[in-house]
């Protein structure tokens, strides 16, 4: 959860100061801010459970690509504004379902973070969904761009629902939901928005994988981390 919000937050923050209109610039920066706040909570908890004295900052700035466990969707480049918003919508819809399930986690700290985050993400998905509809069912140009964004990003959706041994162990203890259990509700929500946006969902549900396990990230993550971690790499332990 923490790597997903960290990586996506950084991606979204890349728009700060250069978004198409002021309101969108502010909205993107706010979304990035919510996600980075959630990152501090998730990675803080992860470091605490690990018990090796690593805090959220250490986990964010002192790990390289192969140690990141975010889904490949989160690290995809921004592309144009439409592609950014399509990525956001596809992620937000899953994020909200996941957080709603985590509110009932048997781990009280996880449940508390989810309870806080669900309120913020409700606003995220409202905006990204509205924007996908507005641009998809917009001009010929915006429609084409949104369809292209959907076609490009759809192969990264499936990984959100892939279940491995860790997920099964978490689910057995009531800590987190089985990823597969969220798929039906996700499809229902996404299909409704795509229909309203006059966009066509790709036929194939082929899914790129390797982000969540850390086995094979896309080339984009390494480039992103060199920028995000530049200061700590050049001046370890720098503070001000």
């Amino acid at each position: 959860m923490g790597d997903n919000t960290l990586v996506l937050s950084h991606r979204v923050s890349e728009w700060c100061g250069v978004a198409p209109v002021l309101e969108e610039d502010i909205a993107l920066a706010n979304t990035a801010l919510d996600l980075i706040g959630q990152t501090q909570l998730w990675l803080g908890l992860a470091g605490e459970i690990e018990g090796k004295g690593r805090d959220a900052d250490t986990l964010a700035f002192r790990r390289d690509v192969w140690d990141f466990r975010n889904v490949l969707l989160a690290e995809q480049p921004n592309g144009d504004f439409g592609q950014t918003m399509m990525r956001q919508y596809l992620f937000d819809t899953w994020h909200l379902l996941q957080l709603k399930a985590l509110k009932g986690s048997s781990n009280a700290q996880i449940a508390a973070i989810a309870e806080k985050a669900v309120k913020e993400v409700t606003y995220h998905v409202e905006r990204s969904g509205d924007t996908v509809i507005g641009l998809g069912d917009g001009t010929e140009e915006s429609h084409q761009r949104m369809q292209k964004a959907l076609d490009r990003l759809w192969p990264y959706v499936g990984e959100l629902f892939v279940s491995d041994a860790v997920d099964q162990a978490l689910s057995a203890k009531g800590i987190a939901p089985e990823p597969t259990s969220l798929r039906e509700e996700y499809d229902t929500a996404v299909n409704a928005v795509l229909a309203e946006a006059t966009l066509t969902r790709p036929d194939s549900d082929f899914a790129h994988q390797g982000g969540k396990t850390g086995v094979r990230h896309t080339e984009h993550l390494g480039h992103m981390l060199t920028e995000m971690q530049w200061l700590q790499r050049a001046y370890p332990d720098a503070t001000w």
């Binding site: 309101e23 969108e24 502010i26 909205a27 706010n30 979304t31 919510d34 913020e120 606003y123 905006r127």
Partner: peptide
């Protein structure tokens, strides 16, 4: 409403 996101996380425009 102009935008659900405003000058701080708690405000809308």
């Amino acid at each position: 409403r102009i935008s659900q996101f405003g000058s701080t996380p708690c405000k809308a425009q």
